[in-house]
């Protein structure tokens, strides 16, 4: 009889300290990655401390590992934070829907991430970069509160190395340091200053709910169709499989019908996220 709450044990291959309170963990099951797609999520746990929900942060085309990023905040993440390379992490998943990369092929794409919401954006971004020739111009806009809060510093350098790829990094006003060379301003403000148009283009967005709400408005102003604005919503979840009853927005269960939605789909949801 299948126990749908039983985790597999995934082994920690590498830990990247992104910022003082965030880490990215690279995992393998039986020495390799698992089958998943960008946009999907899993339930990751430190056995004995608890389980938390995280989206995948890696490109699923890279077969040697899969990764997620977390901020140490509560009991479960403190537990995960205490683990070392070689230790095991409980994993259930992958769950949920995923980005429709077929719909994105041949188009310009702008990837917009805020804070730790950059994690699922990184997954689909690196997936597209892995098949760079399938897509048009790629723009990345990533914002964090302060310079210290910027994650993925090594990955950002890798993104910049791709042809026809612009990477714009911004920090909130007041979050800059004297030697900061990137942009200063909130993500929606910087977004509207970018030379990006909605024609034959797709926008991928994830970040705090308040950022998503404003970014969706900006993108529409810039001429993006609501069907071409894709976001991923990360509501609080426990089971990840439609039973524990807390991730719904109106009638939509984020864990099953999401977490990936278009702005058009979000428009029909009540303001409950």
């Amino acid at each position: 009889m299948e126990n749908i709450y039983l985790p597999k044990l995934a082994v920690i291959k590498e830990i990247i300290q992104e910022t003082p309170d965030t880490k990215t963990v690279r995992l393998t099951v039986d020495g390799a990655s698992i089958d998943y797609l960008p946009g999907q999520f899993g339930e990751f746990s430190c056995i004995g401390e608890g389980e938390s929900t995280f989206g995948f942060a890696s490109s699923s085309l890279r077969k040697e590992f899969f990764e997620f990023s977390f901020r140490t905040s509560g009991r479960a993440t403190s537990g995960i934070n205490s683990l070392n390379v070689g230790d095991s992490i409980g994993f259930r998943g992958p769950y949920g829907n995923f980005f429709d990369t077929g719909k994105m092929k041949g188009k310009d794409i702008i990837f917009i991430g805020g804070g730790i919401g950059m994690a699922p954006v990184k997954s689909i971004l690196e997936y597209c970069l892995d098949e760079r020739n399938d897509y048009g111009k790629i723009t990345v806009l990533y914002g964090a509160k302060t310079v210290m809060d910027l994650m993925y510093k090594n990955a950002i350098e890798e993104w910049k190395a791709f042809a026809n790829t612009d990477v714009v990094i911004t920090v909130d006003p007041g979050g800059e340091t004297p030697d900061w060379k990137g942009r200063v301003g909130f993500v929606p403000t910087i977004l509207e200053e970018l030379p990006v148009k909605g024609d034959n283009a797709v926008a991928v967005v994830c970040g705090p709910p308040i950022m998503i709400k404003f970014v969706l408005k900006s993108l529409e102003k810039m001429g993006f169709n609501k069907e071409d604005i894709i976001t991923t919503l990360e509501n609080r979840m426990k089971c990840g499989i439609g039973k524990c009853g807390r991730c719904n927005i109106g009638s939509v269960y984020v864990c099953k019908e999401g977490p990936v939605f278009t702005a058009k789909e979000i428009e029909s949801m009540p303001n409950d996220f």
Binding site: E49, C239, K243
Partner: peptide, 17 residues
């Protein structure tokens, strides 16, 4: 009403979810 929470309970040697 059937909504539930999931928690780990025990020590770092043994316990249960």
């Amino acid at each position: 009403c059937h909504c539930f929470d999931i928690q780990d309970e025990g020590t770092n040697e043994k316990g249960k979810r």
